[in-house]
Nucleic acid binder design. Structure first.
Lengths: 223, 223
DNA sequence: TAAACATTAATAGTAATACTATTATATTTG
DNA sequence: CAAATATAATAGTATTACTATTAATGTTTA
């Protein structure tokens, strides 16, 4: 398994970067520290200047890798969903029972994430916090439609499509497979956000994850 | 009914404004045109300068009503949720059957909104588009926790709490009433966003609303 | 080994944003 | 009518999100 995970193939739309950050020390440093800095100060306050200072490099050097901070965020979120897609493929490949497959998929997208150590420049635990706090910002722009056409959100949609397929296997007659799948993925992020900030309108407590809520929901709806 | 609706009491946290915009022509103009302008160009591109030009007034005059554009957006979204709360109270007040009550509540928060003409300075249809496209931005900031303490999101939470209470009436043994209620309200906004921008991962089509999907969900989960 | 090329750092500069402050002029109200 | 208040106009500031230029460094290859 460790072997398989280290061959992990993360696919990212090459329109998201000017120069592939995986190909140099500086690039890897940008990835690593942008995750940490966005987590610390939030994406709105994050600037290339601050990142440059942090990694003892220069603002303009970062611009050689990413056109702007929005594309860097879309890059990081694509990385996350690509990693998630891989985990999901891996976890469901040898499972023939559709219900069991659905349970595994729901668990993966709803559980609390911990760093998996296979990628030293990406801390998945911190990255997953960024996904909870900032992911919708990648979609909620006036450029969504153009960026969607360019394929910026393909990986995200692929994760959801995988769940749609499993839902259809479990119950081919359920008429809202797409909405249910996107609800689970986005809704889970939202429940995690609520448990961190608006605790009174979620049942999730401090260290809990959304797995039970969504597993119960899916079973009651589909079975 | 018209009478009742025109006595409509919208409650808004007075920390959200410097001067109450409902008390002057200019204030009402700011509300009316900020909604239209945000809808046209998006909240990110929206500035007080552009709004000033549009209403033949001055940037600095707008600052006498709202400290910054973020608070204006929170004001507008509070207005919407307060309006929604009122509609919900009105629609469920004489309904004794809990299931019917839940159906009505779900319908209200998931349906497509049309302008209701009782408030000439607020176009509810346009405002509801802003809620779909921009509402999460009011929450997803590094200031959420402070602003939540200040009560900026009270009206929103009150709408959700109303639904939580109805869910508990329908099925007192269901353990995730809070998460289900917040899922329906936020999830509905998200499904509307998807039908506008990422059509392949929702079952909602162009003019459709999320009522059927969530009514079906709630019934299967609770009954 | 030297020339060529690519990468990075440093500096400077620009337009736009998100404000604040000041003043002059209306308008309302007591 | 005087005083208080509201508004418009102007100017100014710090920060952001970049772009452009140059110089220094390292790396490749003829």
């Amino acid at each position: 398994m460790h072997n398989l995970l280290s061959n992990l193939k993360i696919t990212i739309n090459d329109k998201l970067y000017v120069k592939n950050p995986e190909t140099s020390e500086l690039g890897l440093n940008i990835l690593k520290n942008s995750i940490l800095l966005i987590d610390e100060i939030g994406f709105d306050a994050f600037t290339f200047k601050k990142l440059g200072e942090r990694i003892q490099s220069n603002e303009s050097s970062i611009y050689r890798y990413f056109e702007n901070k929005h594309k860097l965020l879309v890059y990081l979120t694509s990385w996350y969903w690509s990693w998630m897609e891989y985990r999901m493929a891996f976890a469901t490949i040898n499972v023939s029972n559709p219900i069991e497959k659905l349970e595994k998929a729901i668990k993966l997208v709803t559980e609390n994430i911990i760093d998996d150590n296979t990628t030293p420049h990406i801390n998945e635990e911190v990255l997953s916090r960024i996904i909870v706090e900032e992911f919708t910002k990648t979609l909620m722009t006036k450029e969504v439609d153009n960026e969607n056409k360019e394929g910026f959100f393909l990986v995200y949609k692929r994760v959801i499509n995988r769940i749609i397929d499993i839902i259809k296997e479990v119950n081919p007659n359920y008429p809202y497979a797409k909405s249910l799948a996107s609800s689970i993925v986005e809704g889970s992020l939202h429940q995690h956000f609520l448990k961190n900030h608006l605790k009174t309108i979620t049942n999730l407590s401090e260290k809990e994850c959304a797995t039970d809520f969504y597993t119960d929901m899916a079973k009651k709806i589909l079975l």
